[in-house]
Design a protein around this nucleic acid. Structure first.
Length: 158
DNA sequence: GCCAACGTTGGC
DNA sequence: GCCAACGTTGGC
């Protein structure tokens, strides 16, 4: 069995916050609507059940990691691509060859303290994190086990 | 296949 | 609101 991996998933809290996830039925949501091929590849091929998720709040003040979640369903075709009324509708995507994928994630624990972007930047051992790179836009990013552990510690989780 | 125009993301 | 980064689109 493959080792657990770790990921950072971005969400705009005005749209869907970690708090929303905590309040969702079974504290679980479909993580979809992603229309970027690199992120799609991660969702389709890499995220597996049991993988850890850093839930990152973007486009807010302060931005940062708000909580920890877990992948509870691996990649499957994102239903919104087939929904003509959905903003993520993709007329070019066929059921037999879906273009876009989603996973399900379940909230595990809110960080005692939000780990802000500023705080992440201040930690030299986190300098390699994708979310710190200028111009970074990828909404699904891999995180190393060491980064995962450190972010949780900064957030007040042991 | 090149590349300019355009749209989106997201920090500041 | 600004603008850098960068993915996508479409003319050629």
């Amino acid at each position: 069995m493959r080792a657990v991996r770790y990921w950072l998933l971005k969400s705009e809290p005005d749209v869907f916050s970690f708090d929303d996830l905590l309040r969702a039925p079974r504290r679980t949501t479909v993580w979809g609507g992603v229309r970027n091929y690199q992120a799609r590849n991660y969702l389709r091929d890499e995220l597996q059940v049991g993988d850890g998720v850093l839930f990152y709040h973007s486009s807010t003040d302060p931005s940062g990691v708000a909580g920890v979640a877990r992948v509870v369903r691996a990649g499957y075709p994102d239903p919104t691509q087939f929904d003509a009324d959905d903003p993520g509708h993709d007329a070019g995507s066929k059921h037999e060859a879906p273009r876009w994928f989603a996973v399900n994630v379940r909230a595990e624990q809110e960080l005692a303290e939000l780990v802000s972007l500023e705080r992440l930047r201040a930690e030299p051992r986190l300098a390699g994190m994708g979310v710190l790179r200028r111009g970074n836009r990828l909404s699904v990013q891999p995180v190393t086990p060491a980064e995962w552990k450190l972010v949780l510690a900064l957030g007040g989780l042991s």
